[in-house]
Amino acid sequence: METLKEKILSIINDNNIGTMATLNGRQPYVRYMTFTNEDFVLYATTTEDSQKVMDLNENPYTHILLGYTKEDMDAPYVEITAKLSEIKDDTLKLKITNFFKEIFTSDEGEMVTIQLDPISIKLMNDGEPQELNF
């Protein structure tokens, strides 16, 4: 029997594209993002001067939906409340940046890699919502 942690980790590991909401002042914004992860910590990439980077520098909190697809609307997915943080390990930072470089090329400017530390993760569509706190 899978534990809550295992179920959540499996969804995060298996899904790369999700939505990420931020606040610009009081106004919410949400967009699709590609994520990678090391356990429960998420990483994403974006252009340095993008709106979402500016939003996160003002308000580091974000809300992410990962694992939902219209192809299987009954499948479990996760809701993640996370906070912007820094990648402290240089080796890890290089590994993640290179991972994204393989996927994205930007002629719009410098790409930055952001780390998002989970605060709480809710498992949805699998009975009653269950929450994992960090």
Binding site: A21, P28, V30, Y61, H63, I64
Partner: peptide, 15 residues
């Protein structure tokens, strides 16, 4: 079906 983002007491929320 879409994603709707809101402001939850200064923290973003979505569903």
């Amino acid at each position: 079906i879409g994603v709707m983002a809101t402001n939850n007491n200064g923290v973003p929320n979505s569903r």
